[in-house]
Amino acid sequence: MSRTRLTGIDAARGVALLGMMSTHIFPLYDPETGSPTFVALVFSGRASALFAVVAGIGIALLTGGQNPGAGRSPGQNRRGIAARALVIALIGLLLGGLDTSIAIILFHYAVLFLMVLPFISMPLGRLAAWAGAWICLSPVLAYLVRPWLNENVSPPEVGGNITWEHFLEPATLFADVFFTGVYPTVQWLSYLLVGMVIGRLNLGALGVQAGLVIGGIFAAVAAKFVSAYLLVDAGGFAELLGTESGQRWPIGRMMEVNLTGVDQSGSWWWLAVSAPHSGTTLDLLHTCGTAAAVVGVCLLLTRARPNLLLPLSAAGAMTLTLYSMHIWVMALVDAQEPALEPVWVFWPQAAAAVLIGIAFAKLGSRGPLETVASGASRLARDGTLAENRR
């Protein structure tokens, strides 16, 4: 791997990739007991959040790291990121046409790249203030807006992955992408902003790396403790059981794994939840904390030996290609009858991702889709496909 590249960041992205793959393949509930599985308890909600936080770190590094905008104008940086977003969106739309049960993140990911453009030139202090405010206020905005969308937009969500045909229903598409879908970008922008804050730090400094671990763990644990106090000691959970969703769903069990698809309305106590994919302030704080801790650990482990986590960092350096391959493979797997055992689906894919990543790393090459995205970014930013090494 390039000596100038922070392989710890790539390793964290590799963790996110394998974690997301595991939640796509392994059951999240034990079919016999109904209890959450190990994969659900460890990776559900956290892997995808890590993916988004590392995306924010990447944007910060692309736009100057500790010196935002260094060497290029803000307009150039914005054009480059917008072009990258366009490529990612097109790939997401193509994958959305596959017959798969996986909620593909790429189109929403591209929208997040566009949403973050106003923030790329902000100094660290102002950016951190925006990130904190967004974590606190975006869930409140979503809580207020979702009921209106559910009543006035028909249907209020696309009901699957986004494809070209959904552009014929712009209101539904807007509602799904920003508020009502699996990855509501209004709340998910928090992850990219936090990632950009991390990316503006001196990531090579030992104190910063250790601070990410300690601060991340503290934030993650504190969010869970506050949520537990509000729901159990303050009586919030009993109030939620009285809502329509509380009477319809086993929300106690679902709060351990995933609240996707649960209508979180009818009580302000929903904002006290920290469940995966609930999109509340405490959920965002918890998952930002776990993401920061993983990034810090990966940076510490690769501090003296950049290739120590090569299987993860090599795969993490080409996640766009590997994620797309995974979605395509899963579309084929889902069509198999009888269904394959999850262990025989996950481990070959994980091994293939690692081996492909190492092969490209040894060749000193980007992945195919990374090459396209980077080329489009350079063309829009610098007016040339040639890489300008600064």
Rank of each mutant, 00 (worst) to 15 (best):
V53A: 08
A60H: 09
V145D: 04
L322T: 04
A83I: 04
L309M: 08
L201M: 10
N307H: 12
P27L: 10
T260N: 13
K224S: 14
G357M: 08
S73H: 02
F167R: 12
V232L: 14
V145W: 07
A131N: 01
R13P: 06
Q187D: 11
L144V: 14
R72N: 05
V54M: 03
A131C: 11
V232G: 05
G71V: 02
A52P: 06
G242S: 09
E165V: 14
L203I: 08
H166I: 07
V111T: 07
V186D: 08
G236P: 04
R381V: 04
G97A: 12
A12T: 05
R200I: 05
G125R: 15
A110G: 12
L310F: 10
L322D: 10
P74I: 08
A110W: 10
W347D: 07
G71D: 05
V295W: 02
G242M: 13
T281Q: 12
S154L: 11
L106N: 04
P36R: 04
L259K: 05
L62F: 12
G71Y: 08
G45H: 02
V297R: 07
L41P: 00
V145Y: 08
A352G: 11
L212W: 05
S48C: 09
V145P: 05
M21Y: 04
G160P: 01
L124F: 13
A380I: 02
P155L: 07
G56I: 03
M325V: 15
L106T: 01
R366M: 12
L93Q: 01
A175F: 01
I251N: 06
P170C: 08
G14R: 00
Q336L: 14
L230E: 13
L61Y: 05
G19I: 02
E157S: 15
I251T: 07
G132Q: 03
H166L: 06
A133Y: 07
L340P: 11
L86S: 11
L299I: 10
L309D: 01
W268Y: 10
L201K: 12
R253D: 13
E165N: 14
L312Y: 01
G289F: 03
L193M: 10
L50T: 03
C136Y: 02
A359G: 13
L379R: 08
I135T: 09
R389P: 04
A386H: 12
A228F: 08
F174H: 06
T319Y: 06
A60W: 01
A291Y: 00
D263F: 10
T384H: 03
C136G: 11
R200Q: 00
A350H: 02
L117E: 03
D176W: 09
L149E: 02
A350N: 06
T321S: 15
A129S: 14
M20S: 00
T319M: 07
A228P: 03
A47T: 01
T100C: 02
Y143L: 06
D30I: 05
I91P: 00
L241N: 04
M115G: 10
G97Y: 09
V329I: 13
T172C: 09
A331E: 01
A210W: 14
P31W: 08
E239K: 12
W148G: 02
L28R: 10
C298L: 12
T37G: 09
M115N: 00
L332M: 14
S274K: 00
V333D: 03
M325D: 04
A228I: 07
G195Y: 00
I327N: 09
V153C: 00
A171M: 12
L240I: 08
T243F: 04
Y183H: 09
S265F: 00
T280S: 13
I327S: 00
N307R: 13
E337V: 15
S44M: 13
L320K: 06
